[in-house]
């Protein structure tokens, strides 16, 4: 609404005209104010900035890491882990959610167990995964996959269970059965909930990759965090945190943007910007 009003503001009234600004600019005001304030506080000697480095130091560290190629290596390692873990979690969660949603028998069989497993704090799996899969990539990917699995499983199962019987009957009236009913009625009906499940799964994937990299990694953004703590480099920690924020936002935006063309029909669908 507000964007429409701003861009449509009359230019001919001669008065001072507001520059048309996208809505997200408003959201930038607070973080920028905080950053500038902290920078000024350190510059004017109000704070030492030893434990919480000013933005300029954080960006200098980021620049150093980027220039040496280190940053790209760490980002690539972390992203790859998230990508593989997310992929595995999504496939498993989608399959399990689909059968559990479709078949009452399967649901009664597996859902209580899965709900039980879901209530286990994810970090509790770490020792077991290390025993089973070693301390290298496999255990990390497994932990991420577990984190992604549950929201996707729940989302798909819930979506299938809540498909409107009345809509399914429309398919039956036109004699759709089996695969055609799934493709033409069930899949489009569950798509919005599925996209939401993917997005929350992805968020958990980024969360779990940190836990995974804490359990011993020689590269990755999580390694930068641990390394920064052990060597007393808070600027490196904040730099890594910033990278997580940017990567999380970008990947979430990609999923949202990728699904948007299929969800244009939705009554309540609003692009996030």
């Amino acid at each position: 609404m507000s964007a429409v009003e701003t861009t449509a503001a009359p230019a001919s009234d001669g008065g001072p005209r507001l520059i048309p600004a996208p809505r997200f600019v408003v959201g930038l005001i607070l973080p920028i104010l905080l950053a500038v304030g902290w920078e000024a506080a350190v510059r004017f000697g109000l704070a030492t900035g030893r434990l919480m480095p000013p933005p300029s130091r954080v960006f200098a560290t980021l620049w150093e890491l980027a220039a040496s190629g280190e940053l790209a290596r760490h980002i690539a390692a972390t992203s790859l882990r998230v990508a593989v873990g997310f992929g595995l979690g999504v496939v498993a969660g989608t399959l399990a959610g689909a059968v559990a949603g479709y078949s009452t028998l399967v649901r009664r069989l597996i859902d209580p167990t899965l709900q039980g497993l879901r209530s286990i704090p994810s970090i509790a799996w770490v020792p077991l995964f290390i025993l089973w899969l070693g301390i290298f990539e496999e255990s990390k990917v497994a932990l991420i996959a577990v984190g992604v699995f549950f929201p996707v499983y729940l989302g798909v199962m819930g979506a299938i269970l809540s498909v409107d019987r009345k809509i399914v009957e429309v398919g039956r009236v036109f004699r759709l059965t089996g695969p055609a009913l799934v493709r033409r009625i069930l899949l489009p009906a569950i798509l919005p909930a599925y996209v939401l499940a993917l997005r929350s799964g992805l968020g958990l994937g980024w969360m779990f990759v940190v836990a995974a990299e804490f359990m011993g990694a020689s590269e990755g953004l999580g390694y930068l965090l641990v390394d920064g703590q052990q060597l007393g480099k808070p600027d490196q920690i904040v730099a890594a945190i910033l990278c997580f924020a940017v990567l999380g936002k970008i990947t979430d935006g990609l999923v949202a943007a990728g699904s948007a063309p299929f969800l244009r029909w939705q009554d309540n669908f609003r692009r996030e910007d």
Binding site: K166, I167, E169, V170, R172, V173, F174, R175, I185, P188, A189, L191, F262, W265, Q266, D267
Partner: peptide
């Protein structure tokens, strides 16, 4: 079971929201 020669209109339109 549903037959091609029989059409039905329900109390609600029951349109598929993802199709124009």
């Amino acid at each position: 079971e549903p037959h091609p020669a029989v059409g039905i209109v329900f109390q609600e339109p029951r349109l598929l929201p993802w199709l124009d």
